[in-house]
C-alpha cells in the first residue's frame, strides 16, 4: 500500500492540524495564557512561508534520491512523530480528566491509537476529505457555543493587549511557528493531480490558519482574565471548556470540538510521519509505516520525562527544523544555480 494524498485533501488536513495545534499549544500546553497570545499566533505565521519555500526548494519528500532531502525528511519525520506523541499525551490527559479517571492510561491510549491506525490505513484522501468536512462543521459548532456564551465574554479582559510584553510574544510566535512544522509535513508529500503551477502552500492558506487560531484565542482570553497565579493544566482545560459562568451543557459542543479537532490533528500527523517514512524506505508497506509511527506515538507518552523534555524542546522546534532547511536551500541554490534537487 502506498501512502499518498492529493493536494485537494492535503490543504484542509494541514489547515485543521495547524489551527488545532496552535490553539492547543498556546491555550493549553504552553503554560500560563497571557493576553498577547493572539498576536503571537498571527506573528508566528510570518517565518513559516519562507520555511515552506525553502522546503520546496530542497525537495523534501519529493525526491528520495537526494541525500539532503532524505536527511531533512528524516528530521521532519522525527519532529512529526514526536509531535504526534505529544498529541497522544494531550488526549490521554484530557480523556482521563473528562471521562475516565481511574482507567489505566494504556486503555485510554489504545482506542485513539487504533482509530489513528485505521484512519492512516484509509490513506491520505480520506483524512483530508474528513478534515474538509470538519472545516465546515467546526465554525457551525463554534457559532452555537459563541451565541450561547455571548453574554459571558468580557472584551475588557483582553487588556493590557501585549500581555507580558513583546519578548514573550516573540517567544510564543516562534513556538507558534514550530506548530506549523509537523502540521505542514503533509503538504510536502502531496500529489499534484492537477498541476496548475501553484505551490501547495500559499500565503492565503497560512494567513487564514493563523487568523482562525488567533480568533479562537481571542475568545478564549475573553472567557477568563489574566491571572497572577499559574493554573494547573487540568484547570486550564476546564477553563477552556467552560468559563464557569455559562450553563454546563455548553461543554458538550466544546468537548466534541476539542476531541474531534485533536483526532484530526493526530491522524494528519501520523499519516504525514508514516508517508515520510515510506519515502525514506520505499520498500516498506504503508500499513507497516503507519504501524511503526503510531507505535512510537503510543509508547512515547509513557516514557518518563518525555513530556518535560518535549516541553523544553517545543519552543525550539521551529529553529531546529528551519535552520537545516534554510542551509540546505541555500546550498542547493548555490551549487545548482537555483535548481531544485530533483531537477539536478
Amino acid at each position: 500500500m502506498k501512502l499518498s494524498i492529493s493536494r485537494d485533501a492535503a490543504l484542509p488536513a494541514a489547515f485543521v492540524a495547524a489551527v488545532t495545534r496552535i490553539f492547543i499549544d498556546l491555550a493549553l500546553d504552553g503554560g500560563p495564557v497571557h493576553n498577547g497570545v493572539w498576536i503571537a499566533a498571527l506573528l508566528g505565521a510570518l517565518p513559516v512561508l519562507p520555511y515552506l519555500v525553502c522546503l520546496d526548494m530542497v525537495g523534501v519528500g519529493k525526491c528520495r534520491y537526494a541525500t539532503v532531502g532524505r536527511l531533512l525528511a528524516g528530521l521532519l519525520l522525527a519532529a512529526t512523530a514526536l509531535d504526534g506523541a505529544r498529541i497522544v499525551s494531550v488526549v490521554l490527559r484530557a480523556s482521563g480528566f473528562l471521562v475516565l479517571d481511574p482507567v489505566s492510561p494504556f486503555m485510554l491510549v489504545l482506542p485513539v491509537v487504533l482509530a489513528a491506525l485505521w484512519c492512516t490505513c484509509r490513506n491520505g484522501d480520506a483524512i483530508g476529505y474528513a478534515a474538509m468536512l470538519w472545516r465546515r462543521a467546526f465554525p457551525a459548532l463554534m457559532l452555537v457555543v459563541m451565541i450561547l456564551q455571548w453574554r459571558h465574554y468580557r472584551p475588557q479582559w483582553l487588556r493590557p493587549w501585549l500581555g507580558n510584553g513583546w519578548g514573550e510574544i516573540a517567544g510564543e510566535a516562534i513556538r507558534t511557528a514550530g506548530c506549523y512544522v509537523p502540521a505542514t509535513s503533509v503538504l510536502l508529500i502531496c500529489r499534484h493531480d492537477d498541476e496548475t503551477g501553484k505551490r501547495p502552500f500559499t500565503v492565503a492558506w497560512i494567513a487564514l490558519a493563523s487568523a482562525v487560531a488567533s480568533l479562537l484565542l481571542v475568545f478564549r482570553l475573553m472567557m477568563t482574565p489574566s491571572g497572577t497565579n499559574d493554573m494547573a493544566w487540568i484547570t486550564r482545560l476546564d477553563a477552556l471548556l467552560t468559563n464557569g459562568r455559562a450553563p454546563l451543557y455548553l461543554q458538550l459542543p466544546m468537548i466534541v470540538a476539542f476531541f474531534v479537532g485533536l483526532m484530526h490533528l493526530l491522524a494528519c500527523e501520523c499519516f504525514a510521519a508514516a508517508a515520510l517514512l515510506q519515502r525514506l524506505i520505499p520498500r516498506l508497506n504503508g500499513r507497516v509505516c503507519a504501524g511503526i509511527v503510531i507505535l512510537i506515538c503510543a509508547v512515547l507518552p509513557f516514557v518518563r520525562s518525555f513530556r518535560s523534555m518535549l516541553d523544553r524542546a517545543m519552543p525550539w522546534l521551529f529553529i531546529a527544523a528551519a535552520l537545516p532547511v534554510a542551509l540546505a536551500a541555500l546550498s542547493q541554490f548555490h551549487f545548482n544555480g537555483g535548481k531544485r534537487s530533483c531537477e539536478s
Binding site: 473528562l98 485510554l108 483524512i127 476529505y129 474528513a130 468536512l133 491522524a267
Partner: peptide, 30 residues
Amino acid sequence: AAFGLYGFCMAAFVLSVSVCGMKSFGFAYV
C-alpha cells in the same frame, strides 16, 4: 458505552474518515 464522549467523538471521527475514504466508480463519496 466504553469511553463516554471521548468514545463518541472517536466513533464519529472514524465514521467520517471511513465515509470520506469511500468511492463510487472512482468518484469521492462525499
